[in-house]
Design a protein around this nucleic acid. Structure first.
Lengths: 118, 118
DNA sequence: GGATTGGTTAGTCATACGACTAACTATGAG
DNA sequence: CTCATAGTTAGTCGTATGACTAACCAATCC
């Protein structure tokens, strides 16, 4: 549970940076090497590498070194888990709103009945 | 677009802290005051307030001061938007996997045809 | 085998973050 | 009016983060 919480810390933390989100977007299209990922950014290579490490530590991507290039790819399951946390909170909230709405309709119905009877 | 990116920075950043996620979870059940939110944590009030400010700045919650208590509630739309970003990346990735799978089946079918014909 | 390419490590630096205490404000209750 | 309550502001402190440069390794290529 605490471990699960830590995974979310890392995942959300990883996604809080625009460069890293751009990397994720790139990887959602297709796997890529560190160099390819670095190209669109005016950024030193070690900086990108650091971002990739952060994403990897979060589990959102995985990497494998083949020869001298390191290929990176998205881990959809991890993205899904993160998404699920948000979906759950929203579901709880929205269920609550539904119940409230139902309750309000109920009250209104009662009131109308009263109007008729008094 | 840059503004949208900044909103995601704030939302994901806000959610990267376990205390703030706990606050969001609490608020998904029902709105609450700052004091109520602070209670479960062994944390000084100003610290919680700071977390609440971060959540508010991200748009994930909204607050309103009534008398001397400040009520906080979840903004489901903002949660939804954040969730959508993740859903989109995953959808793109999974569509790609589907295409690849289809392509592989295609190749296999071709190969079988070849086997029969040669 | 020597140069080139792609990545990696180490070390630095400025800024941001999360927590705290102490002191202050403003509302509501008796 | 006075006091307790709920929140707020200001200021401090240690650690984490994101960026950089310089130097280093290890596969390829010619």
């Amino acid at each position: 549970m605490t471990n699960q919480s830590h995974r979310l810390d890392l995942a959300f933390g990883a996604l809080s940076d625009p460069t890293r989100r751009a990397v994720v977007m790139h990887l959602s299209q297709k796997p890529a090497s560190v160099g390819e990922l670095a190209e669109p950014f005016a950024m030193a290579m070690p900086t990108i590498l650091q971002h990739i490490r952060v994403l990897e530590a979060s589990g959102l991507i995985e990497t494998e070194k083949i020869g001298r290039v390191r290929m990176c790819k998205l881990r959809a399951e991890a993205v899904h888990e993160t998404e699920q946390w948000l979906a759950l909170q929203r579901a709880i909230w929205e269920r609550r709103l539904d119940r409230m709405e139902a309750y309000v309709s109920h009250l209104q119905a009662m009131e109308e009945t009263n109007d008729r009877n008094c």
